[in-house]
Simulated scan of single mutants.
Amino acid sequence: MKERLFSLAQLVALTRTPPQLLALAARTGCDGAGLRLLPSAPGGVHHPLMDDAPLLRETLAVLRDTGMRVFDLEVVRIGADFRLAHWQRFLAVGAQLQARHVLVAGDDPDEARLIEHFGALCDAARPFGLTADLEFMPWTAVSDLKTAARIVGAVGRDNAGLLIDALHFSRSSSTLDEVAALPPAWLHYVQVCDGAVPGPATVEGMIFDARCERLLPGEGAIALQALLARLPAGLPVSIEIPNEARARAMGHEAWAASCVQAARRVA
């Protein structure tokens, strides 16, 4: 069986710079990390390596010295005003980092236009060796697995992917049968965590929970092992378990170690 790779997601320690997060990933036994170069929402914490040459050099040095990998870069949001030229420097830096994947969020309610723009992003990412992985989230225009699969299928690019986050999966109308029916080539990695099922009743509550109060695998009611069993064997795992209160109380180092240990137990 293919050995599973583990990546520490930026949200576990959002304020850590890319070199700090990569070093933390190394100390906690991960194979790499995901880096947030762009905000998930206006004003959100991020680390714009595209505009900080010294920080980029430091990040590249840590990659060289630790043997860590950059698994994914966050986050490209495709809205109605999407302009491909805006993302060229982001993609070029991804190639410098030898990153594998770009996390994509779909915010455009016009599905035909979203498909067009997502396809253009895939085409632009290909020369840099990057996949573009569409993540469905209940509060976005791509709210469930069925919608994401329809879009990825319509785009038809060989580097177009579909990203499943266990929390969003559990809080959408998506099913395990839909997961099992996905073409394996669309799946490049999966995000794991745990949480209450059902989750918060409001969009605001779901967003806060997803960004600030996730649980360790085994602490909630998400059927993680059933989900992983329907995905390709050995699919890389992104450990995305932000919990601001517990990280403050324990310290980010101890919290990250707990996240990695819990993820390895279920995956």
Score class of each variant (00 low, 15 high):
Lys2Cys: 02
Glu3Phe: 02
Ser7Ala: 15
Gln10Trp: 09
Val12Pro: 07
Leu14Ser: 05
Leu14Met: 13
Leu14Val: 14
Pro19Leu: 03
Asp31Ala: 07
Ala33Cys: 07
Gly34Cys: 10
Gly34Asp: 14
Leu35Ile: 15
Arg36Ile: 01
Arg36Ala: 11
Leu37Ala: 01
Leu37Arg: 13
Gly43Met: 01
His47Gly: 02
Leu60Asp: 04
Leu60Trp: 07
Met68Pro: 11
Arg69Ala: 11
Val76Asn: 06
Ala85Arg: 15
His86Trp: 04
Gln88Lys: 09
Leu91Gly: 06
Gly94Trp: 08
Leu97Met: 10
Gln98Pro: 02
Arg100Gln: 14
Pro109Phe: 03
Asp110Pro: 05
Leu114Asn: 07
Leu114Val: 06
His117Lys: 12
His117Tyr: 09
Arg126Val: 05
Phe128Lys: 15
Gly129Ile: 09
Gly129His: 13
Ala132Lys: 05
Ala141Thr: 09
Val142Arg: 07
Ala149Pro: 03
Gly153Pro: 07
Val155Gly: 11
Val155Thr: 09
Gly156Thr: 10
Arg157Thr: 07
Asp158Trp: 06
Leu162Pro: 00
Ala166His: 05
Arg171Glu: 12
Ser172His: 11
Ser173Arg: 15
Ser173Ile: 08
Thr175Leu: 04
Leu176Glu: 04
Asp177Tyr: 01
Ala180Pro: 08
Pro184Glu: 01
Pro184Cys: 03
Ala185Gln: 14
Trp186Phe: 07
Leu187Thr: 09
Gln191Pro: 01
Gln191Asn: 05
Cys193Ser: 15
Asp194Thr: 04
Pro200Ala: 02
Val203Ala: 14
Gly205Trp: 01
Met206Trp: 13
Arg211Gly: 10
Cys212Val: 07
Glu213Gly: 12
Ile222Pro: 03
Leu224Thr: 05
Gln225Asp: 13
Leu227Phe: 09
Leu228His: 08
Ala229Val: 02
Leu231Lys: 01
Leu231Glu: 02
Ser238Leu: 15
Ile239Arg: 08
Glu240Gln: 13
Glu240Cys: 09
Ala245Trp: 04
Ala245Phe: 00
His252Val: 12
Glu253Leu: 13
Glu253Asn: 06
Glu253Cys: 08
Gln261Thr: 14
Ala267Phe: 15
Ala267Glu: 08
